[in-house]
């Protein structure tokens, strides 16, 4: 393990050091036991063409362009929520985000999940939210603005955390080639069903109970109190 070092921790640590791709790193690899290939070392490869982007990718369902389209949709609508001041628009942007997520599920060969996403989330939860908006908002156009301080802090924390995570991510060699090709006769819904009734039976039952409790509780809490 290369984490142990004989040098004192403050020596030979240039702040520019970790930006140098040629420098060999062992940290995250040592943590997850993978081959040290730096993602930035790929930059020697030729710039992809549009045709290549539209060609199906063996690693996932659909072409890379599809991925980028979904990603753009998801991210843009998600950030649109942040910048939107209208709660109704927010919910619409949330719908778009949820649909983008469903697209990802499809590409990741989780068709069942994509369906559930659209039905339960977009069709159920989102509707629930819209109901909430309607019930609580006599004026749907009403805006509750945060102070600039709050906005700044929020953006700082959000963006800062994202930047840190991306930084970590970029420097973490990912198991990009590690997936197993799905057999042609593989039926995921069947596998899910089996799992629910075998390995995940207890969570499944618990989820059922939870839904019941939620139903009762929500009804109780949301009731209009007498007087």
């Amino acid at each position: 393990m290369a984490i142990s070092c004989t040098q004192p921790w403050w020596s030979a640590r240039s702040p520019i050091g970790f930006l140098d791709p040629s420098r060999e790193r062992h940290y995250s690899l040592a943590l997850i036991g993978l081959d040290p290939i730096h993602p930035l070392q790929h930059k020697a490869a030729p710039v992809p063409t549009l045709a290549q982007l539209m060609t199906a990718d063996p690693a996932q369902q659909g072409a890379p362009l599809l991925f980028y389209a979904c990603a753009t949709l998801t991210c843009l609508s998600a950030w649109a929520i942040v910048f939107s001041q209208n709660i109704v628009r927010m919910s619409v942007y949330l719908l778009l985000t949820l649909m983008g997520a469903a697209g990802f599920y499809l590409m990741l060969q989780a068709e069942f999940l994509a369906a559930v996403q659209l039905i339960v989330y977009a069709g159920g939860t989102l509707i629930l939210i819209v109901f909430g908006i309607m019930l609580t908002n006599k004026n749907p156009e009403m805006q509750l603005r945060a102070t600039p301080m709050e906005l700044g802090l929020g953006a700082l924390v959000g963006v800062g955390l994202a930047a840190l995570l991306i930084l970590a991510l970029v420097h973490t060699p990912t198991p990009g080639q590690g997936f197993t090709a799905v057999p042609a006769d593989y039926q995921q819904v069947r596998a899910i069903g089996r799992s629910l009734l075998s390995e995940n039976l207890v969570p499944f039952e618990l989820a059922a109970v939870l839904l019941l409790v939620v139903m009762v509780g929500a009804a109780y809490m949301a009731r209009r109190r007498a007087g």
């Binding site: 490869a45 030729p46 290549q52 982007l53 950030w79």
Partner: peptide, 22 residues
């Protein structure tokens, strides 16, 4: 292949990071 073509876990993680930040 160019990393842009070789959609891998990193790409998804980047997207979700953006999402979580939002």
């Amino acid at each position: 292949t160019h990393p842009a073509l070789d959609i891998g876990l990193t790409h998804y993680l980047l997207v979700t990071t953006t999402l979580v930040a939002a």
